[in-house]
C-alpha cells in the first residue's frame, strides 16, 4: 500500500499490516522507524499509517468474532 508524502512514495508491506495485532500497535511499531529513515515528521506519518491500516486490515468484527463466540458459549 503506497503513501504519497511530498516527493516521497512510501510502499508499506501489506502482509505487515494484515499481520499486526491492532491499529495502535502497527502505528506505534512502524511510524517512528519509517519517519526517521525517510526524514519525515512522525505525527504526519502516524496519521497516514492509520489510514492505510483502516483500508487494508481485516474488519475489527472479524478479529473479535472468535472471542465473542466463546463468550456466547
Amino acid at each position: 500500500m503506497k503513501i504519497k508524502i511530498g516527493l516521497k512514495s512510501i510502499d508499506i508491506s501489506d502482509s505487515l499490516i494484515k499481520g499486526s495485532k491492532s491499529k495502535e500497535a502497527f502505528v506505534k511499531e512502524n511510524a517512528e522507524v519509517i519517519a526517521k529513515a525517510n526524514g519525515l515528521d512522525v505525527g504526519l506519518l502516524s496519521g497516514k499509517l492509520g489510514e492505510v491500516y483502516d483500508l487494508l486490515a481485516p474488519p475489527a468484527e472479524t478479529k473479535e468474532a472468535p472471542e465473542q463466540k466463546k463468550k456466547e458459549k
Binding site: L7, S9, I10, D11, I12, S13, L16, N30, I34, A37
Partner: peptide, 11 residues
C-alpha cells in the same frame, strides 16, 4: 522476509 517499507524519493 520482505522489508517493512520501501520509499522512492523523486528528489
Amino acid at each position: 522476509q520482505q522489508p517493512t517499507s520501501v520509499t522512492y524519493d523523486a528528489e
